[in-house]
Nucleic acid binder design. Structure first.
Lengths: 195, 195
DNA sequence: GCAATATTTGCAGACTATGCAAGGATTGAG
DNA sequence: CTCAATCCTTGCATAGTCTGCAAATATTGC
């Protein structure tokens, strides 16, 4: 886990560029900011900007951290109910996001107004869902059930952030609990009466 | 519901451009097709192309049809179980998509390789989910439950198409049933043991 | 057939993104 | 410390995206 000087600098520059991108986007909207302006604000050349991110939308979103092996082990070999283990994962993810609420708010604002950014995020989420579904494959009835559960994870995080952004002074954790309850209610609705 | 000559021509040109875009994309990949080429293949000027679609990704996806009032009424005032009414809506949507499987296959292929296209589709889906959640607001326990149910609708359609695309000779309808079962199983998992 | 209204088109111009090659910085070995 | 290998940054050239504008063309309703 020790990074070379080069790697540390690279990460730092990437974060730096993301900040600059988001701050400019908050002022004028990402559409109205040029890559040139972002590069200047980040202290790198326009060409170097594209060595770090494929485009300004990707710069605004940044490089999201991967799931830890620890988290995935809980999903694979957890002893509690599946629902409880999933909720645990959600709590952890939301807690880590709550560490920088301002960043989250800025990213959220970009995502709401920018189609390309939404597409890039979808790409990240697809990869995450694949990972989660993989971890669940032993515990779920079959592949499709695992996929449906994985989707609920990313959806619930998205829903919680959305609620937190729109409902004035609800904490991220409370928003998660609220959306989670809605999900459980929806699951009851779907599973109880039909067939 | 009668359209003027102008409106009919406009729709026809739009479909024409979508076809041309998709056919070129199948040959070389959408990334390697220029808007100029699409315009020539569609028989319009490069400038006119942009009067119809904001970009080539939007042209590939096309203008998806809205839900009919009839469909929405079933959601609002259906007498069967909510799960059954939702399944009905899904069956109808999938049946209408099955009318042009080649188009669906081409659009799917673009979506799998193009981030921007995924973002545009997400935009359409968000709007659909809002509509569905709105219809469900009276029948669901609360707003969050309705939102979770609406999300399952678009997710299930997406999942069914994905399955149909990848599993050799499964029909769209069978794919939908399979994904739907996975969803029901997932719902049972989430609703039964926890709390 | 004519005036009002919409659509198409070409053109100019700002912005995005990539390949390439030169120049600079970092690294590890001696 | 020094040198060679390696990696990173940068400027430049270039292909492509997309918008505003104004002239030309087509459609509509009267």
């Amino acid at each position: 886990m020790t990074l070379s000087l080069r790697e540390r600098r690279r990460q730092e520059t990437a974060r730096h560029i993301q900040r600059a991108t988001l701050e400019l986007a908050m002022q004028s909207g990402l559409e109205n900011v040029t890559t040139e302006e972002i590069a200047v604000a980040s202290g790198v050349s326009a060409r170097t900007f594209f060595n770090y991110f494929a485009n300004k939308e990707a710069a605004a979103i940044g490089h999201p951290p991967n799931f830890s092996e620890e988290d995935k082990d809980v999903l694979r070999n957890g002893t509690a109910s599946l629902a409880a283990d999933l909720k645990l994962l959600l709590d952890k993810q939301i807690a880590s996001m709550a560490e920088d609420e301002e960043l989250l708010r800025m990213v959220g604002r970009v995502l709401r107004s920018n189609e390309k950014a939404r597409g890039i995020l979808e790409g990240f989420l697809m990869a995450e869902r694949r990972e989660i579904a993989d971890c669940l494959s032993h515990r779920a009835i079959n592949h499709h059930t695992a996929a449906a559960l994985a989707k609920t994870v990313t959806d619930t995080i998205g829903g919680a952030i959305y609620l937190w952004e729109h409902d004035g002074n609800m904490s991220l954790g409370t928003a998660l609990d609220t959306v989670w309850e809605g999900l459980i209610d929806a699951s009851r609705t779907l599973s109880l009466p039909a067939d």
